[in-house]
Structures are given as C-alpha cells and as structure tokens.
Design a protein around this nucleic acid. Structure first.
Length: 264
DNA sequence: TGAGTATGTTCAG
DNA sequence: TGAACCTACTCAT
C-alpha cells in the first residue's frame, strides 16, 4: 500500500526495531543474494525517507528500497519467527524482530552520493517538518499540464500517489483537469496543507483515511461493513460522500482518477 | 484455475 | 504513450 505515508510508517518501524543493533539478512527468493550477503551482520545505524523512497542505513552501506506498485513489508515479532515466504526478496532480523520485503521495484545497495542523487530528483516531501512548498508552487503555476498530472509527478511533490491525488483534489473542490497555471495560489496552499496533514495521519495510522469525522456516518460502510475512509477514490458506482453524485473516472497520467463532478 | 486489478516507475519507440 | 516488471488478492468459471 505504498504512497508516502506507508514509506514513513515503514521507516519508523525499521528504526524502532533495528536501530543500533546488528542484523542478519538473507534473500529467500534469491534475487538479492549478493546484497543480503554484504549486509549480513552489519550494524543497522538508522533510516531516512523521501517521498516513496526508503533508505536503510547500515554501518558500511545504504539500502535503497522503492516498493513500486506491489511491494510490501511483512513484520514478525520474535524471539522465534515464522520462516519468510519463498517470494521474499529480503529478510532483515535481529533477536526481537524480522521484516520481510517482497515485490519491490528497487532493492539495491548504494552509497551516500547515490542517495543524494535520488533525493535531488524529488520535490519536497510534505511529511517532512521543514518541507518548503515554494518550488512546487512555482512549477505548478508555470505548467500547462493538469493539476491531476502534476500531483502525480514526484519531482514536484514527493510522496503523493493515486489515492491522495483523488482525495486532495476533492478536499480542495478542484477538478483534476484544471491546468496548473490556472490553479489559484490559495487552492494550491490548501492542497499542500491537506497533504501535510493527511500524509502524517496516514503514517501514524498505517493507512490512508481522508474522511472528516462529520462525514463518517454509520451508513458509510463498504460491502464488508468496514468504515468509509475515502471521499472519491474507488467509489465508482457509489455516491459522493458529501453530495451523492455518482463518482466519475478517467485515465490521467496513466492512472485512473476519481472525482465528483458536482463538488469539484 | 485463470483473469483481472492494484496506493508505481522506467525505458523503448 | 505503451509496455514491461514485481506480487497478492478477489472474483468468475
């Protein structure tokens, strides 16, 4: 479930579980055997993250992980662990915890120059305390691309994906198809402020929840009886949480965008 | 059992 | 712009 909030969540988990301990690493699936051998028995020194990129710091190396669309971590608590699945790219463990990584787009050993190179290609990450949206605003304000495309561009804002795109645009009552240059500055400021708030909330909860308490009505449950967590994302065939209008969909920036034609 | 879908990125053309 | 790639889950047959 990898947008920026998940990466922050996983970073925090690894920090708590492994920081300042010596870890064992192996690659059950075999596609990262050399890397796992190099990391094995190193001191785990800390974590950093920017947007959807996770960096695990070891005493000699940095492990760069990007989960892509399918990647995930499975956590196991010791002192005795279940064996990792055969599909696990990497298991990291100490005496008390194990994390199993499967399906990542990237799992590679880099150095600090490599880390800086990757981060330099990314826009500000709203989840960071010192993130500055000024450059992102300048890029949006100059662009003839739609705001729905721009929000998916990691070099403008890092960490937003298809769910947050749909929800942030809904919360600012903005159509995904408005060109960036026609987005008012106060609307962009609203999108940014909500991204800061919702990415942090998602990182804390470990899942995306964008719906305000006043909209969390008892009847707002999905087919499985679970509470409603999104206003528009994947609500095709159901009504907008606020006004009841059927949710529209269209491909935009290679992904399906969801919006309410009345509210936005 | 197989098709379809998914919160993403990169590279070829 | 489209295809390729990585995995797990749901739904229809």
């Amino acid at each position: 479930m990898p947008e920026g909030h998940s990466i922050r969540h996983y970073a925090d988990m690894h920090e708590k579980a492994f920081a300042n301990t010596r870890v064992a690493t192996l690659s059950p699936q075999g596609r990262f055997s050399d890397g796992a051998a190099k990391l094995n028995n190193q001191l785990f020194t800390g974590v950093s993250a920017h947007g959807k990129h996770l960096f695990l710091h070891f005493e000699e190396d940095i492990l760069h992980i990007h989960l892509g669309l399918y990647g995930s971590f499975t956590w196991r608590r010791g002192p005795s662990f279940e064996s990792p699945k055969e599909t696990a790219r990497l298991r990291i463990s100490n005496e008390m915890f194990a994390s199993d990584l499967s399906g990542p787009t990237a799992c590679e050993i880099i150095d600090d120059a490599g880390r800086q190179s990757k981060v330099s290609k990314l826009g500000p990450d709203p989840i960071h305390d010192n993130a500055n949206p000024d450059d992102a605003w300048v890029k949006v304000h100059k662009s003839s691309k739609t705001i729905g495309e721009l929000l998916m561009d990691q070099s403008i804002i890092a960490g937003i994906g298809n769910v947050y795109r749909a929800e942030l645009l809904f919360l600012s009552n903005t159509s995904p198809f408005v060109p960036g240059k026609y987005v008012p500055q106060e609307v962009f400021a609203d999108i940014w402020a909500n991204s800061v708030r919702l990415l942090r909330l998602g990182a804390k909860d470990g899942r995306i929840n964008t719906v305000s308490p006043e909209h969390l009505q008892g009847e707002e449950v999905d087919l499985h009886g679970r509470m409603q967590y999104n206003y528009v994302y994947k609500r095709t065939g159901r009504g907008c949480v606020v006004c009841g209008t059927a949710i529209s969909t269209a491909p935009l920036a290679g992904r399906t965008v969801y919006w309410c034609e009345t509210c936005q």
